[in-house]
């Protein structure tokens, strides 16, 4: 039987792929990376399952706060890294696609969580999940993208800086996972919102400078 996450991915991927051909270059790139993010989520689910099958003695809480964040953050950074290496190292473009990848990842993850917990979901749940997980994945990949944007300009800084930002993203992701699985889940949902606002200011400023 096909897994639910693969079915959800196809449901999202087919219409989005058709949409890409109708959009201008910038919009198409963003939608394409949302799609890439969804694919990365699918891949991460498979890799996480594989790792868990290797270490069955590890409990779910420990797995989701130590192993899963590392796997997911590394996988989300890969498409951004490939884009920066092969296509463009424009800072604003990299930050845009980083955020798109993170949000694409969060969309498929949220849909999957919803499909497995259908009796417990509500509009309020969807809103919290959208703000919390959506922004958390977006902000984490955005942070790593910031380091990756130095890939061609400052190679030394790119190598050490990207790994440092990756470590920060993994800890941030682990804190989020830890909070949402505990009694303090509302704090977990507020945390990404507090970090998203400065990110929004940085992006808006960058776009304004570019326009000038």
């Amino acid at each position: 039987m096909d897994s639910m996450i693969s079915i959800l991915f196809v449901c999202l991927a087919v219409p989005l792929t058709m949409l890409i051909f109708l959009l201008d270059r910038r919009s198409a790139r963003i939608v394409a990376f949302v799609l890439v993010g969804c694919f990365v989520c699918l891949l991460a689910a498979q890799i996480n399952s594989l790792i868990w099958s290797i270490f069955p003695e590890m409990d779910a809480f420990r797995f989701k706060t130590t192993v899963a964040p590392a796997v997911e953050e590394v996988l989300k950074a890969l498409p951004v890294l490939i884009f920066a290496f092969k296509l463009s190292d424009n800072r604003i473009t990299i930050l845009e696609i980083s955020m798109a990848t993170g949000i694409g990842f969060a969309i498929l993850e949220t849909l999957f969580v919803m499909s497995t917990a259908t009796p417990n979901v509500s509009l309020f749940w969807a809103l919290l999940r959208g703000i919390g997980a959506g922004l958390m994945h977006g902000v984490c990949t955005f942070g790593v993208g910031l380091g990756i944007s130095y890939v061609r300009k400052k190679k030394k800084l790119f190598i050490t800086g990207s790994f440092a930002l990756l470590m920060t993203a993994i800890i941030y992701h682990s804190i989020f996972n830890c909070l949402i699985m505990s009694d303090y889940k509302y704090a977990g949902f507020i945390l990404p919102l507090l970090t998203y606002l400065p990110v929004l200011v940085v992006l808006r400023k960058g776009m304004k400078n570019k326009a000038v």
Binding site: T66, K156, L157, T160, A164, M167, T168, I171
Partner: peptide
């Protein structure tokens, strides 16, 4: 045992390395 919090030390080290190796050493 190991937990993600320890990556704070690794990340801190990497940032310090970035500052001196990436910015000043050249």
């Amino acid at each position: 045992g190991y937990n993600s919090g320890y990556l704070g030390i690794t990340g801190c080290g990497l940032f310090l390395l970035s500052a001196n190796y990436g910015q000043v050493n050249g």
